[in-house]
Design a binder for these strands. Structure first.
Lengths: 217, 217
DNA sequence: TTGCAAATATTAACACTGTTAACTATGTTT
DNA sequence: AAACATAGTTAACAGTGTTAATATTTGCAA
């Protein structure tokens, strides 16, 4: 049975090479420039070969999304050793924002683009039990941290999961407003007398942290 | 000179008809389905005629964005008569969220899609003084309301503009997480024991309001 | 009224896109 | 060696935004 396994491995290998080529293109040139034909020519195969390994373009994009979630979760896991829960929460926020800037394309893939979701809906007709678990895990990590904060005297009286959702919303809102040009624009219109767009994001986040810090009984 | 003016009017009229056709398509079928050729056939003109009235597709999308901002600002203006500033803030948040649900396509156009921004950047090489003023005006309305809240004893000690940005971030974050399927997904994974996706958004917003309400000295 | 030029609209084409059907090699199994 | 499944290919379909060249309509001066 060694031969069959070797072929299996070869097939899995090509599937990965397609994904790697797609990732390279996607991170460098963005979604629109990542065409099936370009991916194919990058790995020196015919365009239609791609369809032997992925259902369609959304399938590839969905696979990339999963990689993105894994990457973010790795970054989060590195913060597990931060003992102080509030410090850990701060670090998570900073990591999240940084991720949205450094891995902008990944971030859009994971949290704003519709294609991965479309793929999920196309593959399973009804509300089946499927993926996106990496994303849920990342959120769980936030929930646990907020719970730890509560035990340390922060945010008492608030529903933990609800509060987590609101924290996520704020940081996600900051990320997206920033990367879609709204924060820069607000600054340019002299609404906020401060440094350039990148630093106002920093300032806004620090403001938020200071704000949360006061919520200690 | 009456003739020239009549032609001007006719030209402006066709420009508007193009935009109306585009809006109809866009709101009903979404961005991808709104092709130049479909717009053209809707108004029974040749596709290339569009280019006599709009620079490119992004130009049309940008024009639609301005309509969206105007629409939202109208909704906000209707709240000017709410005397109590905190009640006004609540109403603004509700209006904003409702807008993101009812006019989802508009919302994406205004706050998440990259095309309108791309058009702005293509039309003016450097940081010229240009549009997006309707959006800035909407934000100004929020800033004024927050300022009024502060005078009523809320949010004391916080920088008004910074605080406004954070409030905007939170509500914008809720809107986008909701409309990109993340809130629904979190609910489905039983992270929050509550009603369906639509109602959890409501619950999260109410949570947020209750939270802000406590920040009164 | 006729001739001309400017404004307006059209056809044809380019260079792409995702995706499918039909076909051809290749290597394994009987 | 013959039959067969697998893997990959070419060709094609139905679209996309956009531009150049061409045609048509229109307003105005001679």
């Amino acid at each position: 049975m060694g031969i069959k396994e070797r072929k299996e491995r070869h097939k899995e290998d090509l599937r990965q090479r397609i994904l790697d080529a797609a990732k390279l293109l996607f991170l460098k040139e963005g979604y629109d420039a990542t065409s099936i034909r370009k991916i194919a020519s990058a790995i020196e195969f015919s365009p239609t070969t791609i369809y032997l390994y992925y259902k369609d373009k959304n399938d590839i994009i969905y696979a990339l999304q999963k990689e993105g979630f894994k990457l973010l979760r790795t970054k989060f896991s590195a913060l597990s050793n931060v003992e102080n829960p509030f410090e850990r929460l701060k670090a998570m926020g900073r990591t999240y924002l940084q991720f949205s800037i450094e891995s902008r394309e990944f971030y859009e893939l994971m949290f704003v683009m519709k294609e991965p979701l479309e793929f999920l809906q196309s593959i399973c007709g009804e509300g089946e039990d499927e993926q996106w678990d990496e994303g849920v895990e990342a959120f769980n990590f936030l929930v646990r941290t907020i719970a730890d904060c509560q035990q340390a005297g922060y945010f008492v009286g608030h529903d933990i999961k609800m509060f987590s959702l609101l924290v996520w919303s704020t940081v996600h809102g900051l990320s997206t407003l920033n990367m879609h040009g709204h924060i820069t624009h607000v600054v340019e219109k002299h609404l906020i007398e401060l440094q350039d767009g990148g630093q106002i994001l920093e300032a806004a986040f620090n403001s938020y942290i200071k704000f949360l810090e006061q919520l200690k009984s």
